[in-house]
């Protein structure tokens, strides 16, 4: 059975392995970066205006701004299998130095809050959000750079 791999949101990330990147947009007029991507209007009120927004890959690595986890099953539209017991899911907020912004994401499988500290370096890696009969829904995950899988 061949299933398609489909990003949970189109256009937010691309690439495999070491080439994986989150994708934002950048204003041609003021260089502001946006993630999630802005397609039509720059949101910087100080922007001189008139600039188009181009797709731009975000830094692959950043530092942990904070972290937490979900000990209880989140409600829909988060997709879970009610037949299976809920496994806590770790969330990480990551500070990207070049972009001067903080981006949330789930941690890579197996990474728990006990493995994390604020300031630790992590990188964006491809991951699977959930799977059904036809589709493997893909997403981004944050993984400590010291960890080998």
């Amino acid at each position: 059975m061949s299933r398609t791999r489909t990003p949970v949101v189109a256009g937010w990330f691309a690439g495999d392995g070491d080439d994986f990147r989150l994708l934002g947009t950048r204003c041609r007029a003021c260089a502001s970066v946006f993630f999630p991507r802005e397609e039509f209007h720059c949101r910087n009120p100080g922007c001189p205006g008139g600039g188009d927004l181009d797709e731009v890959p975000l830094s692959r690595r950043g530092r942990v701004w904070s972290f937490t986890d979900s000990r209880y099953r989140p409600p829909s539209p988060y997709v879970t299998d009610p037949e299976l017991p809920w496994e806590p899911c770790t969330l990480i907020a990551v500070e990207l130095k070049a972009e001067r912004m903080v981006v949330l994401g789930q941690a890579a499988p197996g990474v728990t809050v006990a493995d994390l500290t604020v300031g630790m370096e992590v990188e964006a890696v491809p991951g699977v959000l959930h799977e059904d009969a036809e589709t493997i829904w893909t997403t981004w995950k944050w993984r400590p750079t010291g960890v080998t899988v």
């Binding site: 260089a31 502001s32 970066v33 993630f35 070049a98 001067r100 912004m101 903080v102």
Partner: peptide, 9 residues
Amino acid sequence: IATDSAVAA
């Protein structure tokens, strides 16, 4: 899901 970027302001 993210903050704004402070790269230009």
